[in-house]
Amino acid sequence: MLARVLKYRWQYVMILPAVVLLFLFNYIPMAGIQIAFKDFAIGSSIWSSHWIGWDNFAFIHDEQFWKVVKNTLYISVLKFLFGFPLPIMLALMINELKHAGFKRFVQSVSYLPHFFSWIVVAYILQSFLTLDGGLVNDLIVKVGGEPVFFLGTNEWFRPMIVSSGLWKEAGWNTILYLAAITTIDPQLYEAAKVEGAGKLAQIRHITLPGILPTISIVLILSIPSLIQVGMDQIYPMMNPANQEVADVLDTYVLRNGLQQGYFGMATAVGLVSSVISLILVLSTNTMSKKINGEGLW
């Protein structure tokens, strides 16, 4: 063991900062989980608060909580159904571009929205979709239609969230797939051409099987997001007019925990969400290994 550590000592030194950060910001804060079982309030410490058992989990009987769960699953499933395959298809299309300069341009343009914060994206959406002076509504009026209250209509909120998420992250998520495609042996494509295989046949029988391990890993890591749709995206776009469909688990925890001071209940909701995420990861990893032999561990 010591000989192995000495042999790879510089590799261990390189990963040491990441391990320290992981320990400080992911493992030490887990001590706060006990708030879910305590009567905690501002001014008292975690350790001195009284144990109250499962009282903070009474939200399970709250009708509003189940509405929030429904909204969360609805949005997350839509984001997953559209957001998971789109980067794969985009990577396949970018890979087929022959002109190196144009290929780099397309990659750069598709990556760029990832670096915008969700606050900036929310401002862009509001500028385009607002009733008064919004570009989209101005075009609708000019073609003889009636302006649409996109930002305050329940029917438009979910499509707006899903489409903005695709625009922002699809290009960035192609990086892993493009990197995986570069590891495929070019001789396989040459042999396929000799056998008369067209582009679609090459993609189906060479490219997709070649990146399947990467797809499996990304799938496993994506499954926990089914109950974590992202407060940073939802909260800037939420208002009283669309709150009925916009309120998700993340905003529910924020509203009850920070704004109303129910820290124990908010921690309990977060704990339940984390446990469900863990179960989803373990289940998806097991199924992936049984189906194609690939998994995270």
Rank of each mutant, 00 (worst) to 15 (best):
L166A: 06
D138I: 12
I60C: 05
L86F: 14
W156S: 04
N71H: 02
I140C: 05
Q107R: 08
R158V: 09
P159E: 06
L178K: 04
A122I: 03
P87A: 11
L90Y: 07
K70H: 13
V136E: 05
F115C: 10
K142C: 02
S163T: 14
F150V: 01
V109R: 00
G101A: 11
A91H: 07
P186D: 09
W156M: 10
S108Y: 02
V136H: 04
P186W: 12
K98D: 02
L135Q: 05
V68K: 02
K142W: 13
Y177D: 05
K98I: 04
G171T: 07
L125S: 02
Y177Q: 10
L178R: 04
G144E: 13
F65T: 04
W172M: 02
W167Y: 08
F128M: 13
S163R: 00
L97Q: 12
F150E: 04
F149S: 13
V68S: 06
I88P: 03
L178Q: 06
M93K: 00
T130A: 09
I75Q: 03
F128L: 15
T72Q: 08
G101S: 11
L73I: 13
G171K: 07
V69K: 00
A100R: 13
L139R: 08
L129M: 03
P159A: 02
K70D: 10
T174Q: 07
G171M: 09
I175V: 15
L135C: 00
S164A: 15
W118K: 01
F115P: 05
K103V: 04
D62Y: 00
S110I: 00
G83C: 07
T72Y: 12
K142L: 14
G134K: 06
G144W: 12
